[in-house]
Design a protein around this nucleic acid. Structure first.
Lengths: 159, 159
DNA sequence: ATGATTACTTAGCCAAGCTAACTAAATTTC
DNA sequence: GAAATTTAGTTAGCTTGGCTAAGTAATCAT
């Protein structure tokens, strides 16, 4: 029924894989999130800091878009992080409306420590796998990464 | 170098895979989360509802643990969801301290619609893959699911 | 039956989300 | 090049979501 000979003809199966991958990602992160308590930072602050640390210098607006919150929300989040000594900001000399935001050394190391805790736990789980199982995960990573970082604008028309 | 002949001897590699899998999961869900705006529910409410819909009937305390929040927080979240007609609760006759919580039909369908939107987007991405790529993802799912749902208590001692 | 424990709620605080309205800088238009 | 428009961010003020501390009510233990 679903096995027509189109170029990529396995729609039902794809939906299955999507359902399972989605659910697995949720459960995986829910479990790793427990480690974040040790950082002393709230989820929103940790997440915003992470975008700045890994993405390098950004503007407040970019950060708000990345975190899917409104500018006033990010404005306060950043203010809190600056007060905590984890970020610093200054106006862009070429366009003095924009806030150029970067992480401080303290911010980077705090975030790195937290991420290391999450990754350490996941590493332990992976080390317990049989060789073939581990290879299956490792082999799927390139593709999963590509899907994960795909442009939100779905296919049809480029922006 | 890392290719000793121990039972499971690839520690550095495991850390690598952990780092990439972690990061991919974050980006994947960040991207899919955009679809949730259409539900009209906040993240915390949507997440709590999802636990009840997929996990079946639970108690308020179980829900709080699952969501990693304190009981008073869940108490209010549930109150909001009940007021919105998405959940209902009643005391357990065997232990009248506990709140038995279940989703209403409206709650289930609202949540299902939202999940369908997320899954649909992911399905489209998967359908665009080459056959070998798709097979790689499908083949890793069993293992990823096992890791994702592993007991938070790390290995050494059973609870 | 009293004391301890457990499950949840109430009160009250602060952080994180929003919209509306504002300031200031840059860009466009005439 | 002055006026209008657009863009980036902030301020004000509201609601929701997080917490702890303290309370109530039910159950369990002695």
């Amino acid at each position: 029924m679903t096995s027509q000979a189109g170029p990529r003809a396995r729609p039902a199966h794809a939906a299955d894989v999507a359902t399972r991958l989605h659910s697995a990602a949720i459960h995986l992160l829910r479990r790793l999130r427990i480690e974040d308590q040790a950082s002393g930072l709230s989820g929103p602050r940790l997440s915003a800091l992470s975008v700045v640390v890994f993405g390098g210098v950004t503007t407040l607006g970019d950060l708000a878009r990345a975190e899917q919150v409104r500018p006033p929300t990010m404005s306060r989040l950043v203010a809190g992080l600056i007060e905590a000594g984890l970020m610093e900001a200054g106006r862009n000399p070429d366009d003095r409306r924009v806030q150029q935001i970067r992480a401080t050394a303290k911010g980077r190391s705090l975030l790195e420590a937290g991420r290391a805790r999450r990754v350490r736990r996941l590493t332990r789980d992976l080390e317990r796998l049989a060789a073939v199982e581990f290879a299956a995960v490792a082999g799927a990573l390139d593709v999963i990464e590509r899907i994960a970082r795909a442009n939100p604008n779905h296919s049809t028309h480029e922006r």
